[in-house]
Protein backbone atom coordinates (compact mmCIF):
# COMPACT_ATOMS: atom_id res chain seq x y z
CA UNK A 1 0.00 0.00 0.00
CA UNK A 2 1.53 3.24 -1.06
CA UNK A 3 1.36 6.39 0.98
CA UNK A 4 -1.07 7.82 -1.51
CA UNK A 5 -3.44 4.90 -1.09
CA UNK A 6 -3.21 5.18 2.63
CA UNK A 7 -3.97 8.87 2.56
CA UNK A 8 -6.70 8.33 0.04
CA UNK A 9 -8.51 6.28 2.60
CA UNK A 10 -8.39 9.09 5.11
CA UNK A 11 -12.08 8.90 5.90
CA UNK A 12 -11.62 5.30 7.05
CA UNK A 13 -8.69 6.26 9.21
CA UNK A 14 -10.89 8.81 10.89
CA UNK A 15 -13.60 6.22 11.38
CA UNK A 16 -11.17 3.73 12.87
CA UNK A 17 -9.59 6.35 15.11
CA UNK A 18 -12.96 7.44 16.45
CA UNK A 19 -14.11 3.88 16.88
CA UNK A 20 -11.07 2.86 18.86
CA UNK A 21 -11.17 6.01 20.94
CA UNK A 22 -14.78 5.43 21.83
CA UNK A 23 -14.24 1.77 22.54
CA UNK A 24 -11.26 2.49 24.73
CA UNK A 25 -13.26 4.98 26.76
CA UNK A 26 -16.04 2.45 27.24
CA UNK A 27 -13.65 -0.22 28.44
CA UNK A 28 -11.44 1.90 30.62
CA UNK A 29 -13.86 4.45 32.00
CA UNK A 30 -14.91 4.00 35.57
CA UNK A 31 -17.11 7.06 35.51
CA UNK A 32 -20.47 6.06 34.14
CA UNK A 33 -21.07 9.32 32.27
CA UNK A 34 -17.70 9.02 30.57
CA UNK A 35 -18.52 5.48 29.57
CA UNK A 36 -21.68 6.68 27.92
CA UNK A 37 -19.82 9.43 26.12
CA UNK A 38 -17.37 6.83 24.89
CA UNK A 39 -20.28 4.78 23.65
CA UNK A 40 -21.55 7.82 21.80
CA UNK A 41 -18.24 8.39 20.09
CA UNK A 42 -18.16 4.74 19.17
CA UNK A 43 -21.57 4.95 17.57
CA UNK A 44 -20.73 8.18 15.79
CA UNK A 45 -17.79 6.57 14.07
CA UNK A 46 -20.20 4.10 12.50
CA UNK A 47 -22.41 6.92 11.28
CA UNK A 48 -19.37 8.36 9.57
CA UNK A 49 -18.57 5.00 8.01
CA UNK A 50 -21.96 4.85 6.39
CA UNK A 51 -22.02 8.46 5.25
CA UNK A 52 -18.62 8.31 3.63
CA UNK A 53 -19.67 5.26 1.69
CA UNK A 54 -22.73 7.01 0.33
CA UNK A 55 -21.08 10.24 -0.68
CA UNK A 56 -20.24 10.74 -4.35
CA UNK A 57 -17.92 13.58 -5.16
CA UNK A 58 -19.75 16.14 -7.19
CA UNK A 59 -23.01 14.28 -6.81
CA UNK A 60 -26.24 16.01 -6.06
CA UNK A 61 -29.36 15.05 -4.16
CA UNK A 62 -31.27 12.34 -6.02
CA UNK A 63 -34.48 14.15 -6.84
CA UNK A 64 -36.11 13.10 -10.10
CA UNK A 65 -37.34 16.15 -11.95
CA UNK A 66 -39.33 14.47 -14.67
CA UNK A 67 -40.57 10.99 -15.31
CA UNK A 68 -40.59 8.79 -18.36
CA UNK A 69 -37.88 7.24 -20.39
CA UNK A 70 -34.82 5.55 -19.19
CA UNK A 71 -31.22 5.80 -19.84
CA UNK A 72 -29.36 2.99 -21.41
CA UNK A 73 -26.20 4.21 -19.87
CA UNK A 74 -25.63 3.55 -16.25
CA UNK A 75 -23.11 5.55 -14.41
CA UNK A 76 -20.25 3.70 -12.97
CA UNK A 77 -20.25 3.98 -9.22
CA UNK A 78 -17.76 6.63 -8.17
CA UNK A 79 -16.45 4.69 -5.33
CA UNK A 80 -14.80 6.25 -2.46
CA UNK A 81 -13.02 3.46 -0.75
CA UNK A 82 -10.03 1.96 -2.44
CA UNK A 83 -10.14 -1.47 -0.95
CA UNK A 84 -13.75 -2.20 -1.62
CA UNK A 85 -13.54 -0.97 -5.15
CA UNK A 86 -13.50 -4.32 -6.81
CA UNK A 87 -16.45 -5.64 -4.91
CA UNK A 88 -18.45 -2.55 -5.65
CA UNK A 89 -17.57 -2.78 -9.25
CA UNK A 90 -18.93 -6.26 -9.41
CA UNK A 91 -21.99 -5.18 -7.56
CA UNK A 92 -22.58 -2.61 -10.25
CA UNK A 93 -22.69 -5.23 -12.94
CA UNK A 94 -25.34 -7.13 -11.13
CA UNK A 95 -27.24 -3.98 -10.59
CA UNK A 96 -27.42 -3.55 -14.31
CA UNK A 97 -28.97 -6.97 -14.64
CA UNK A 98 -31.69 -5.76 -12.39
CA UNK A 99 -32.12 -2.61 -14.45
CA UNK A 100 -32.20 -4.50 -17.72
CA UNK A 101 -34.86 -6.63 -16.28
CA UNK A 102 -36.82 -3.54 -15.43
CA UNK A 103 -36.42 -2.22 -18.94
CA UNK A 104 -38.10 -5.25 -20.30
CA UNK A 105 -41.02 -4.54 -18.10
CA UNK A 106 -41.10 -1.13 -19.80
CA UNK A 107 -43.29 0.34 -17.18
CA UNK A 108 -42.69 3.75 -15.77
CA UNK A 109 -42.94 2.89 -12.12
CA UNK A 110 -40.71 -0.07 -12.46
CA UNK A 111 -38.20 2.07 -14.19
CA UNK A 112 -38.18 4.70 -11.55
CA UNK A 113 -37.92 2.10 -8.88
CA UNK A 114 -35.10 0.46 -10.73
CA UNK A 115 -33.25 3.70 -11.13
CA UNK A 116 -33.67 4.68 -7.54
CA UNK A 117 -32.65 1.19 -6.65
CA UNK A 118 -29.65 1.59 -8.85
CA UNK A 119 -28.78 4.77 -7.08
CA UNK A 120 -29.18 3.02 -3.81
CA UNK A 121 -27.19 0.07 -4.95
CA UNK A 122 -24.07 2.01 -5.73
CA UNK A 123 -22.23 4.91 -4.46
CA UNK A 124 -24.33 6.93 -6.80
CA UNK A 125 -25.88 6.83 -10.21
CA UNK A 126 -26.17 8.99 -13.19
CA UNK A 127 -29.67 9.55 -14.38
CA UNK A 128 -30.26 11.57 -17.49
CA UNK A 129 -26.85 13.09 -17.28
CA UNK A 130 -27.00 14.18 -13.65
CA UNK A 131 -24.77 12.53 -11.09
CA UNK A 132 -26.57 11.65 -7.92
CA UNK A 133 -25.21 10.77 -4.57
CA UNK A 134 -26.56 7.66 -2.79
CA UNK A 135 -29.28 8.74 -0.38
CA UNK A 136 -29.80 5.45 1.37
CA UNK A 137 -26.86 5.44 3.80
CA UNK A 138 -27.83 8.88 5.03
CA UNK A 139 -31.37 7.72 5.57
CA UNK A 140 -30.17 4.67 7.43
CA UNK A 141 -28.03 6.84 9.60
CA UNK A 142 -30.96 9.05 10.47
CA UNK A 143 -32.53 5.97 12.00
CA UNK A 144 -29.33 4.97 13.69
CA UNK A 145 -28.90 8.44 15.14
CA UNK A 146 -32.36 8.27 16.58
CA UNK A 147 -31.51 4.93 18.11
CA UNK A 148 -28.30 6.40 19.46
CA UNK A 149 -30.10 9.31 21.06
CA UNK A 150 -32.63 6.98 22.63
CA UNK A 151 -29.82 4.86 24.02
CA UNK A 152 -28.02 7.85 25.44
CA UNK A 153 -31.16 9.25 26.97
CA UNK A 154 -32.02 5.95 28.58
CA UNK A 155 -28.47 5.53 29.83
CA UNK A 156 -28.46 8.98 31.35
CA UNK A 157 -31.79 8.34 33.00
CA UNK A 158 -30.42 5.15 34.51
CA UNK A 159 -27.35 7.00 35.72
CA UNK A 160 -29.56 9.57 37.41
CA UNK A 161 -31.30 6.76 39.26
CA UNK A 162 -28.02 5.14 40.16
CA UNK A 163 -26.76 8.41 41.54
CA UNK A 164 -29.94 8.83 43.57
CA UNK A 165 -29.49 5.39 45.08
CA UNK A 166 -25.76 5.32 45.62
CA UNK A 167 -24.78 8.98 45.67
CA UNK A 168 -21.98 8.39 43.18
CA UNK A 169 -21.46 7.60 39.53
CA UNK A 170 -18.03 6.04 39.92
CA UNK A 171 -18.41 2.37 39.12
CA UNK A 172 -15.80 1.04 41.54
CA UNK A 173 -17.33 3.01 44.38
CA UNK A 174 -20.75 1.58 43.58
CA UNK A 175 -19.38 -1.93 43.50
CA UNK A 176 -17.62 -1.31 46.82
CA UNK A 177 -20.92 -0.19 48.34
CA UNK A 178 -22.62 -3.30 46.99
CA UNK A 179 -19.93 -5.55 48.39
CA UNK A 180 -20.24 -3.87 51.75
CA UNK A 181 -23.98 -4.40 51.85
CA UNK A 182 -23.50 -8.03 50.87
CA UNK A 183 -21.21 -8.80 53.76
Amino acid sequence: MTLEDALGLYSYWIVIFLMMTGFYIVISGKNLIKTIIGLNIFQTSVFLLYITMGKVQGGTAPILRDGGGHSDHHGEGHNHGGEHGEAIHQGSEHGSVVVDHAVQQASFTEDVIATVGEAAAHSGAEYQGVLYTNPLPSVLMLTAIVVGIATTALALALIVRIREEYGTIEEDEILAIDRKSDS
Binding site: V46, L49, Y50, M53, G81, H84, A87, I88, G91, S92, G95, A120, A121, H122, L136, P137, A144
Partner: peptide, 13 residues
Protein backbone atom coordinates in the same frame (compact mmCIF):
# COMPACT_ATOMS: atom_id res chain seq x y z
CA UNK B 1 -24.39 -2.20 12.35
CA UNK B 2 -20.80 -2.05 11.16
CA UNK B 3 -21.23 -5.47 9.62
CA UNK B 4 -24.37 -4.37 7.85
CA UNK B 5 -22.56 -1.32 6.51
CA UNK B 6 -19.73 -3.38 5.10
CA UNK B 7 -22.11 -5.82 3.48
CA UNK B 8 -24.09 -2.98 2.01
CA UNK B 9 -20.95 -1.43 0.69
CA UNK B 10 -20.12 -4.65 -1.00
CA UNK B 11 -23.45 -5.68 -2.42
CA UNK B 12 -25.49 -2.51 -2.58
CA UNK B 13 -28.56 -4.08 -1.06
Amino acid sequence: LIGIGLLYQMTGT
